[in-house]
Simulated assay, not measured.
Amino acid sequence: MDPATIIGIGLALGGILLAIILEGSSPMSVILPAPMVLVIVGTLGAALAGSRMADMGAVVQALIKAFTGKAVKPGATIDVVVSLAERARREGLLALEDAAKDVEDQFLRDGLQAAIDGTDPEDLREMLLAKIEVKKGTDKVGAKFFNDAGGFAPTVGIIGTVVSLVHVLENLSEPDKLGHMIAAAFVATLWGLLAANIICLPIANRLKRLSETECAQMELVVEGLMAVQAGANPRLVAQRLRSLVPEEKAKAGAAA
């Protein structure tokens, strides 16, 4: 698991709490149920209104993935493809049928099986690239939801502040309570900004980044499979695939 999201959100929230404490206030002064409920429920409702109910399963999965997604290891995949190329060049493509069952990468396994079954190279490439496009579209669902939520949250927070200020104006006859009520009114704006910039938008960006790296990995697999199917020299296959990823990533993946 790549802990970047957990660490980043934790650091941001920790910095905010530390600032509150250094100001001489208490963190409990901003933990008020009413504005928190308004911002959370209002933001989720607004984001849901711009989506489909059928998308909610993908959104939940995307949220889990944002915190538990694993780092892609290009070097490890390259080593697998090169070993397949060596065996295919030595024994023929049909000899890879048993090896295909042991390949962990589902995309690579499916593509390899299609190649073994005699799929035309151009048809195989088009099929694999189509799968990548479908994945990109699926990944956009979760990222869009959280990006939309990040846009709505500050406005919902302002709505909460306006609602609270209306309540303040209703109680002008009690000046001794106005300071506390006005301070509490702005807590909704704080939670709206916090939800957008510390939680929703970072999660959306994380999902986009994961999708980019995973799709780049799939594109690398496509190039490798084309070379394996063509019976290319394994050494040239390795050089070709390693040229498609940053050197440090290729080395890190191979060492993992």
Rank of each mutant, 00 (worst) to 15 (best):
116 I>S: 04
33 P>Y: 08
182 I>W: 06
24 G>S: 08
32 L>P: 00
101 K>L: 12
171 N>Y: 01
142 G>L: 09
153 A>H: 07
151 G>M: 11
38 L>G: 14
5 T>H: 04
221 V>C: 05
208 K>R: 15
150 G>C: 08
229 Q>M: 05
159 I>F: 12
209 R>E: 09
18 L>P: 00
20 I>K: 06
177 K>N: 03
105 D>Y: 12
21 I>W: 14
28 M>P: 00
244 L>K: 13
235 R>N: 06
114 A>W: 06
249 K>P: 00
40 I>T: 09
85 A>K: 04
122 E>M: 10
22 L>F: 14
38 L>C: 09
217 Q>P: 00
161 T>G: 02
226 M>V: 13
137 G>F: 12
227 A>G: 04
103 V>P: 00
186 F>R: 01
221 V>S: 04
24 G>E: 07
219 E>W: 02
92 G>E: 12
53 M>S: 05
201 L>E: 07
29 S>A: 15
133 E>Q: 14
72 V>Q: 12
161 T>W: 14
152 F>Q: 01
92 G>T: 07
216 A>D: 08
139 D>F: 11
96 L>A: 11
180 H>M: 13
241 L>C: 10
183 A>W: 00
50 G>A: 14
243 S>R: 15
158 I>M: 15
92 G>F: 13
245 V>E: 10
9 I>G: 00
40 I>Q: 03
246 P>Q: 09
228 V>I: 13
106 Q>G: 02
168 V>L: 02
172 L>Y: 08
105 D>C: 07
65 K>D: 12
97 E>H: 07
205 N>T: 11
182 I>E: 02
146 F>S: 04
170 E>W: 06
127 M>I: 00
72 V>I: 13
176 D>F: 05
192 G>I: 12
114 A>D: 03
188 A>M: 05
